[in-house]
């Protein structure tokens, strides 16, 4: 029966020891341990929150970067397009100009050729006239070298005139 009946002596000592233990542990053990552990827990939670925040920031930063990149790409494309257009037009203009230039050169050449030709022709004509005169002179001289020839010629000429 006394197994299930509290004994005053043990009850007294249990009370005394447990209460002192509770007081001592609360003061010298639980307070510093819980303070340290909870402080660490808080700092870990804080670090995690910071990491999360940083990740969010990174995400938004990345999105912004993407946006900027996209804009840059568009701009680049535009610049390229512009450049191409400009170069094309420049080439076109150069071609046009060179064509004109060539035409001009060709025209000038043609003009000079024409004038040269005219000059040459004129010279040729002069030479031919001089040659003709010379030849005619020689022929005449030959024709008139003897009397018979002079007579023949005169006859010839006279027949010609007659025929006419």
């Amino acid at each position: 029966m006394d197994l299930v009946l509290p004994d005053f002596g043990l009850l007294f000592w249990t009370g005394l020891v447990f209460c002192s233990l509770l007081f001592l542990l609360a003061k010298f053990a639980w307070k510093p341990i819980l303070a340290a552990v909870n402080e660490r827990g808080d700092s870990i939670a804080e670090a995690l929150a910071l990491a999360e925040k940083t990740r969010e920031e990174m995400k938004s930063l990345k999105a912004e970067n993407d946006k900027i990149l996209k804009a840059a790409k568009v701009e680049r494309d535009e610049i390229l397009k512009d450049a191409k257009e400009t170069s094309n037009s420049m080439i076109e203009a150069a071609k046009e100009k060179s064509k004109e230039e060539a035409q001009k050169i060709v025209d000038a050449a043609r003009d000079s050729i024409r004038s040269e030709k005219a000059a040459a022709m004129a010279e040729l004509k002069t030479h031919v006239a001089a040659l003709s005169l010379e030849i005619a002179e020689k022929v005449v001289r030959n024709e008139l070298s003897s009397d018979e020839k002079q007579k023949a010629l005169a006859n010839n000429l006279a027949s010609d005139i007659n025929m006419n």
Binding site: D7, F8, G9, L10, F12, W13, T14, V17, F18, S20, L21, L24, L25, F28, A29, W30, P32, I33
Partner: peptide, 26 residues
């Protein structure tokens, strides 16, 4: 009877042990 019985001695040892363990943790 406020004797330091076997259980009271064990109580002292156990409590001392708990205190020492937790104090070294602290």
């Amino acid at each position: 009877d406020l004797s330091i019985t076997k259980n009271v001695t064990s109580l002292f040892i156990g409590s001392f042990l708990v205190f020492i363990i937790m104090f070294s943790c602290a």
